[in-house]
Design a protein around this nucleic acid. Structure first.
Lengths: 178, 178, 178, 178
DNA sequence: TATGAATGAGGCTTCATTCAT
DNA sequence: TATGAATGAAGCCTCATTCAT
């Protein structure tokens, strides 16, 4: 909560302790330092991905799965806190290797699952044969997150961006013509 | 340079003054405060967009223009410092309205130019009739920047991502079939 | 061990508990506080003096006894840990009365025994009639400990200093000429 | 003053700043850290040795010079603050190489000068031919400082110890018989 | 315009100690 | 007797900023 409201660097360890209803000293009985609190959060973030992983694991027709995923993940990202936290973590990841690794791992879990869907879609002839399904998955995620960031910054509701986002992604993926 | 190397919050005003070969006191004769140094940089960033705006203003066939733009902007973003600075500024923009505005304005300049190209492409039947050209432009920029961030974080050269990125964008934009 | 390695003030109570394989809480069941751990050590130190007291109690000719004592006590002090601990305790003794008292008592036990030897030596005409045997004893101890500290700090083996130390002390004590 | 009154470790950086009538931040404009304040003091200590060096440089008969030195240095050491500071610095020197070096250097300046006197005394037949004049000088200094520490700890005025100290040293140094 | 010493609030972390279990 | 989570004061240090020169 602190990191969301004030950002990682603006947040003091005292803020965290107060918010957690824990004495300052005791916070240090649970975390070696402020940095590790962020690491913990980054690890908790991974669990938030479970619902989306579950969707991606569904055996329905891939276009349906993809659509469902886009809607669900977008809805999740529509909450500014999720965008902010992702940005806050991205930002630290640039200079802190352990956070970078966690970030990449978290992301990999999601893209791996999405990659599997895209591959299946190609096999099923539901998607066109993109040159590199993994890269395509990465890009899809990036489009969703980029749009979410924009929605927060420009204060345009995510839902207003959804149409174009879905159109952009699906057009790129669905087989030409039809 | 300081912000790139250590990040905005990790950088002290002293660091900036030293790097600029300026005395600490004199720095404050030129900038009201640390924040304003970041603002200045965000404004300088805008000028860096000029070459890309020039490309987008070219009257060649739009697919060619788009291709040229993608290659040029990607090359620019391939330099980690540009990715980092963009991230650093994005990150501050979340909580600092004036930086947010600058960021949005900078981005608007680029997307407006890109939007014009997309619209022209549609008129020329070189691109399919995307539902909202402006949104599409935004997404294109986000895809490019998202890939660049990934390239920095995962230490994969941007050039290796280029193929998929171009494929993804162009497929989404080019008219079906043909 | 902790006090030796890191010094009294640099050592945390946790360090002590860990080293002693005792839980932090339980340490406090045995010692009222950190201070008292040092007191305990200072008291244990006294027992270390036993061998030297035994030597000083020997009824051999006093020059022989003195020589034996000097060699034995120097050898003991040649171990840096004994010098360091003595210094650590001296240092605390300056401001903590109870440690000062222990320190003085410990020292008294040694000097009293040495004083007895010196006195006997004088009676036996083996030593010259020093003006104040007790003071002389104190000084002898101080010479030994001072040299030991120097040996630790300058990293010169105690054994290299022994010759001069013995010469200095004995010359001062032995009867002038024959 | 702070280090004298409360000891190095018990003294807070704030205490130092307050005592120096300097703001906390400004203290750090002059010293990189607390440690360096002690280093500075250790360096200032060297200047305090000047009067004694001057005495040792006198060309009077060596026994007179030695006597004068012992009286002057003892008087200096009779002030508890000088004993305490020496002890405080000795204590840190054990674990901090830079302070150790300073301490050894300071000490060397004094002992070198004293060594010269002892050597001259030997040449003049005023002193006996001690086996190693440098070691003898070191021991003399240690006797003086050891006695001073004892005087502080046992609260016996240095002046009461002087007789025995001088006797001990001179007897060791003066030629046999005579 | 230029300097850098001065400020003091606030940064993160460690500490000796307590206490419910 | 044993545990270790909990406390909050105090630790050292850095910060953006001011101001006399």
């Amino acid at each position: 909560m602190c990191f969301l409201e004030r950002g990682y660097h603006q947040t003091g360890v005292r803020d965290i302790a107060n918010r957690a209803q824990v004495s300052l000293g005791n916070l240090y009985n649970h975390f070696p330092g402020k940095h590790d609190v962020l690491v913990e959060i980054a690890m908790l973030e991974r669990k938030e991905m479970d619902p989306f992983l579950k969707i991606l694991a569904m055996r329905s027709p891939t276009p349906k799965v993809l659509d469902k995923f886009i809607r669900a993940y977008s809805k999740y990202l529509a909450a500014p806190e999720n965008v902010i936290l992702t940005l806050e973590i991205s930002s630290e990841a640039i200079r802190q290797p352990d956070i970078a690794q966690l970030f990449v791992e978290n992301r990999a879990e999601l893209t791996d699952a999405l990659t599997a869907v895209v591959k299946r879609g190609i096999d099923d002839k539901d998607f066109r044969a993109v040159p590199d399904p993994e890269q395509a998955s990465q890009i899809i995620i990036e489009v969703l997150e980029g749009s979410a960031y924009r929605s927060v910054l420009s204060e345009v509701p995510m839902r207003k961006l959804m149409g174009s986002v879905k159109d952009f992604i699906l057009t790129s993926l669905l087989p030409r013509q039809g």
